[in-house]
Write a protein that binds this DNA or RNA. Structure first.
Lengths: 214, 214
DNA sequence: CATGCGTATTTGTGATCACAATTACCTTTG
DNA sequence: CAAAGGTAATTGTGATCACAAATACGCATG
């Protein structure tokens, strides 16, 4: 069955899934970009069977859309859908941050500050992919403390769906805007200020909405 | 490619997915029940290829769990996980109900009351599967009015994960308890009472939690 | 130059097979 | 009677192939 030995090997379709998922979530693909079974199969030197599983799984999570004829492509979201996904992010991420708050010790805050510095570097370089990845890493690091794996998995699915769109939106994003809301989040974490934390997280998540509502 | 003609045909793997998904969501399978590729393939007279896609997709949504050796089975949830999923339900369903409220006209309330009657019948018959299905139909009918497909899809994934557990829990459920909280929901809908609606939905969703916390 | 039309290529689907690993069952042994 | 060992059956994985549908391309026609 070619399963894992120790903790290193992975099934081919799982490896494909993780790789493609990262590409999509971190904005390495444009909205509407087509993906073919044989194209991916050739790139990774496997047959179409494991590719089909990986693409179907991604499609099931909303990371890919399937045309009426069965073709795969990254989703091109409508404004309504983007707004809804942002609202879903706000809903769940505020809850996750609240649950993480009582468990957020100094070591965590320091790690978050370190990640925040990486985000600033990415912003300075105008590196969209690194920006998106480190930004999500900031949120994921915080939410991992919430000890709520189902909620985290759900919000990651939302991130996945928004990946290509976030990349496309990054072009018209702020220029010299280091993570402002992240500083508010860190301050609230240090002060143990739950209402302030909720407001800061909500603001950070819905921030990207403004520049598309026009 | 064997795609749809008009609006009736479905690809084999999609048909499998929908059928198995209903079985799981509506509590027709026990927690921990094993599912095999060739078993399903024989039951539906197809090869293992489409079965694999359907099972993998269900596993990706949390409807099935995969053992370390790759075997499929319905998930046996821990109490912590159940509690988290219920909290996630409450979070999203309160939002969906709130969004549906301004669009809930009399015709919708009447449909909900009709579904409620079906629930009472299922309770009287002690028919667990019908109870679960009609109960979810009540919620889905309301939430469809929210015009928030991503949120609805997310909460349906949660329902899916809880399906087998809900069935197992139904045995120790109330006996002669017709949908009490549903009446509160309907009353709040008629009165346009948003705070009351939110409380009623949250109570209905977290209700089932009490009987397992012991 | 634009518009159909027909052919060739591309693409996803499902069946089948070989394979390796896990699991189940039965026999043997203490 | 219980535990251990070994064989047989079961199971998921991935490759390959045939097929049908959709798409792309080129040619002829107005």
């Amino acid at each position: 069955m070619a399963e894992k030995l120790q903790d290193s090997y992975l099934a081919a379709h799982d490896q494909l899934y993780r790789t493609l998922r990262m590409r999509i979530m971190y904005g390495e693909m444009r909205p509407g970009q087509a993906i073919t079974l044989r194209g991916v199969a050739e790139e990774f030197s496997v047959s179409v069977t494991p590719v089909r599983e990986a693409l179907k799984r991604l499609a099931a999570e909303g990371a890919l859309s399937i045309s009426v004829s069965g073709r795969f492509q990254t989703p091109a979201l409508t404004n309504d859908r983007i707004e809804e996904l942002a609202a879903l992010r706000a809903l769940i991420e505020v809850e996750l941050a609240t649950r993480a708050l009582p468990r957020a010790h100094m070591a965590l805050v320091e790690r978050l500050q370190s990640i925040n510095n990486s985000i600033s570097v990415a912003v300075a370089r105008a590196d969209a992919v690194t920006y998106i990845r480190t930004n999500l890493e900031f949120h994921r690091t915080l939410y991992l403390r919430a000890q709520a794996p189902a909620m985290l998995a759900t919000v990651e699915t939302v991130w996945l769906q928004m990946g290509p769109t976030m990349r496309a939106l990054y072009g018209r994003l702020q220029r010299k805007d280091p993570p402002m809301h992240h500083r508010l989040i860190l301050a609230a974490l240090k002060a143990g200020d739950e209402p302030g934390l909720r407001v800061a997280v909500r603001a950070d998540v819905t921030q990207g909405l403004r520049m598309l509502a026009r």
